[in-house]
C-alpha cells in the first residue's frame, strides 16, 4: 500500500492545476478579445487607443503569466536545492547579509511598535477599567500578527529589493552568464543560497522583533502601571498557545521563502538594459508584499482550523 504520491505524480498534479488556470486565463483573454472586437465595431473612439477592457484583460493575463513563471521558478528551486554541491559557505554568508542588512531598521521598528501599540491601546481599556489586560492584549497582537508581518514587510523592502537589484545587475552585465561558462551553476550559487538564507533568517528576525516589541510594551506599561517584570511576562504569555507560536513561525518561514524567491525571480529574469535593474528591484518589493498579505490571510485561516 502506498501512502504518499510520488514526485512525478505531484508534478503531474501541479501541472494539471496550472493547465486549468492556464485554460481559464486563455478563456479570459478570449472573452476579452471577442468583447474588444464587439466594442470596436460600436466604439467611436479612434482605434489607436487600446480599449480599457483590453488593457484590463492584458493586466489579468499578465498576472497569471507571471504566477505561472514564478511557479516554474519555484519548481526549479526545489529540483536543484537538494542536489549537491550545497554551497554551505555561501548560504552562511547570505544569512549574515540578510540579517545584517535589516537589523537596525527592524530593531527600531519593533521597539517603536511595542511602545506605540501599548500607548494607543491604553485609553480604550481604561474606559472599561481593564488596564490589567494590557500585557495580554499587547502580546497577542505582537506575537500573532504584528511581528511576522512587520518583519516581512521590512525585509521585503530591504532584503527583497537588494536581492532583485543585485541579481538584476548581474544578469544585465552578463555576470550570470560568465558564472555559467566558468563552471559554476548560477541558479544554485545565486538563487538557492539566497532563498535558503531568507527562509532561515526571517523567522529568526521575526522572533527578535516579537521580543523587542514586547520589551517596548513592557517599558511603557512599567512606567504607567508600575507592573513588575515577572507579572508582565506571566500575563503576556498566558494567552499564547503553542499553536499560535507555531503558526507565527510558519508564517515567517513562508514570508521568508516568498521574499527570497520573488527577489531572485525578478533579478534572475530581469530584462537587458539598465532600467531592467530598477524594474527588478521594484518588482521584487511590490510582488513580495502583495504575496505576503495574501499568505497572511490564508495562514490565519488554516491556523484557525487547528484551534
Amino acid at each position: 500500500m502506498r501512502y504518499f504520491i510520488s514526485h512525478k505524480q505531484l508534478l503531474q498534479l501541479t501541472d494539471l492545476t496550472f493547465q486549468t488556470i492556464w485554460s481559464i486565463r486563455a478563456s479570459i483573454s478570449y472573452v476579452n478579445y471577442t468583447f474588444a472586437q464587439l466594442m470596436e465595431g460600436t466604439e467611436t473612439t479612434p482605434r489607436t487607443a487600446p480599449s480599457r477592457i483590453k488593457k484590463i484583460g492584458d493586466a489579468i493575463s499578465g498576472f497569471f503569466l507571471m504566477l505561472h513563471r514564478i511557479y516554474a521558478f519555484v519548481l526549479r528551486f526545489f529540483k536543484e536545492v537538494f542536489l549537491p554541491p550545497y554551497e554551505f559557505k555561501e548560504v552562511v554568508r547570505q544569512c549574515y547579509e540578510t540579517g545584517v542588512k535589516s537589523f537596525t531598521l527592524i530593531t527600531l521598528t519593533g521597539f517603536i511598535i511595542g511602545v506605540i501599540f501599548t500607548k494607543q491601546s491604553r485609553p480604550s481599556l481604561t474606559d472599561f477599567g481593564a488596564t490589567s489586560w494590557l500585557p495580554s492584549l499587547v502580546s497577542i497582537a505582537i506575537m500573532k500578527a504584528l511581528a511576522p508581518l512587520v518583519t516581512a514587510l521590512i525585509a521585503a523592502g530591504k532584503v527583497g529589493s537588494s536581492i532583485g537589484a543585485e541579481l538584476g545587475s548581474m544578469r544585465v552585465t552578463e555576470q550570470i552568464d560568465a558564472m555559467e561558462v566558468s563552471g559554476t551553476k548560477p541558479f544554485k550559487f545565486l538563487v538557492c543560497t539566497r532563498v535558503i538564507a531568507t527562509t532561515f533568517t526571517i523567522p529568526l528576525l521575526a522572533t527578535y522583533v516579537a521580543l523587542i516589541a514586547l520589551f517596548g510594551g513592557y517599558l511603557n506599561i512599567a512606567q504607567n502601571e508600575g507592573t513588575s517584570y515577572a507579572t508582565f511576562i506571566e500575563q503576556a504569555f498566558e494567552p499564547i498557545t503553542f499553536v499560535d507560536i507555531w503558526a507565527s513561525l510558519a508564517k515567517a518561514v513562508v514570508f521568508g521563502f516568498t521574499i527570497g524567491i520573488v527577489g531572485c525571480y525578478q533579478g534572475y529574469n530581469s530584462t537587458k538594459g539598465t532600467e531592467g535593474v530598477g524594474k527588478a528591484a521594484n518588482g521584487a518589493v511590490v510582488t513580495a508584499m502583495f504575496l505576503v498579505f495574501i499568505e497572511e490571510v490564508l495562514i490565519v485561516q488554516i491556523a484557525g482550523w487547528f484551534r
Binding site: E166, T173, E174, Q175, M179, V181, S182, G183
Partner: peptide, 19 residues
C-alpha cells in the same frame, strides 16, 4: 559542464563580478 571549463569566454563587456 566539464567541457565548458575547457572553453574560455571573454565577454563583450568583461562581465567581472563587481562585488
Amino acid at each position: 559542464e566539464s567541457l565548458r571549463i575547457r572553453i574560455g569566454f571573454s565577454f563583450q563587456n568583461s562581465a567581472l563580478y563587481d562585488s
